[in-house]
Every structure is written in C-alpha cells, then in structure tokens.
Design a protein around this nucleic acid. Structure first.
Lengths: 104, 104
DNA sequence: CTTCGAAACAAGTGTTGACTTATTAAAACC
DNA sequence: GGTTTTAATAAGTCAACACTTGTTTCGAAG
C-alpha cells in the first residue's frame, strides 16, 4: 500500500480523526484519550497502533504511561500530494470539449 | 459526518484513489475506467457514486455515456485543513517537557 | 515480593463495505 | 418497434475492521 493510502486510511476513521484533533493541542496518554472519546482503553490502543504504523503519531513511554504525539511527515507528504493538483484546476482550458470532439 | 471525513473516506479506498489518479489526466467514462482498473462496471459505478457524493467528482451525461471529471473544492478544503497543522510543527517548543512537569 | 495502575495483547461478535451476477433504464441505430 | 450499447440498480457473498470482555505485561510503590 502506498504511504499516501496508508495515511488516508488511518485518518478516514472518525475516532482516529478525532484523536488527531485532540493531539494537535498537545501530547496525551492512552487513558486521557479514552476518557475524551468515551472509548474503551483497548480500542484506543488499537487506533493508536494504526496511527503509529502510518507514522502519524509517535510514542514516548514514561514510566507506566505512554505519551502519544503527532508527527509531521505524513501530514506534509499528504499536503504535497494535494498540491500537485493545483496545476490541474488552473490550466484546465476545458479539456472536456476536446474529449467530446474525439468521441465523434 | 464532517465533509473532511467524507473526503478522506472516499480517497482512502485504493481503487477510488486510483480512479482519482486516472481522472487527473482528463475526464473519463465509466467504461474506460472499468477497463483501466480491470474492475466490473457496476463496481466502478459504485465507486464513482461515493466519489460523487463526496463532491470529488462531477458527472456530465452525454447521450449514452456519463463522463466523470474531478472537482476542485474537496481537494482544496482538505489541503486547507492540512495547512492548519503547519503552526503546530513550527511553534512546538517542546510541549512534552511541560506535560511531564504537570504529571508530577 | 506483593499489589496497584496503565496499557498492550487475545479471542470473539457485529457492522461496514467491496465485490459478484443479474436485471433494469435509457439513448442511439438499424 | 426491435436490437445494441452504456451505465445505474438490486440482491447476495465475503473479507476487513471497529468494538467488546478478558487476560497479560510491566513499571512503581507500599
């Protein structure tokens, strides 16, 4: 799976998306996230696993707890990809007409 | 569901992602996409439905055929959202230290 | 060394959704 | 009007995955 697809897949799940929004304020532990989202701890761990595998999140174990924080790379790469579409919107001197001509 | 989530969900499926990559070259009919991806026509129609519902794609019916083309808005909105993270990477004068202090 | 707290791991359940084949709808052509 | 083509819709199957409860691991503290 391409890394862009992995990133998209990780972000597309509502609760994981919510976790990312929570983490943008600052690092959080598993328990804190579980409380916020009203999810059970194991499920939160699963979601964090997916986010971690996709590189969107990083763990830092402190004693008992594991502190999760956002990681910039996947976000930046996804934004780069979206940026490659800009050219398309701009120099679209309507290609649809050309297409229709070819069809005859 | 938020529109960002809808967009992410639509893009996160590998074949739909592939369809978007095909359409960036130019508009295509259902049949052309099905041939390219080696998928059956009904499945391609389903995928296009999802893309259309999310606003990523627009239809233009010409006689028998339906021509699909990309639509810029959802891409731009998603990029805007990603852009709001830039601040975070920059002014992160490591908040992790603060967090650890609070925990004691 | 026993207990307590936090979080990962295991196994099972239910739902979502990607695919299949078959059918229908609608436009073009004979 | 019947046939052909293109694509949407319907119904059913199967796999992926979000969630549950229960158990295990591991560090800290008594």
């Amino acid at each position: 799976m391409g890394e862009k697809l992995t990133t998209l897949h990780a972000l597309a799940e509502p609760n994981r998306f919510h976790i990312v929004e929570l983490l943008r304020v600052g690092p959080l532990t598993v328990g804190e996230i579980a409380d916020s989202l009203k999810l059970r701890q194991p499920q939160v761990s699963k979601h964090l696993r997916v986010l971690s595998d996709s590189g969107l999140v990083e763990v830092q174990p402190i004693a008992n707890r594991r502190i999760y924080k956002l990681q910039s790379q996947p976000f930046l790469e996804l934004e780069e990809w979206l940026d490659t579409f800009r050219n398309i919107w701009e120099d679209r001197f309507d290609r649809l007409d050309d297409y229709l001509k070819d069809m005859k």
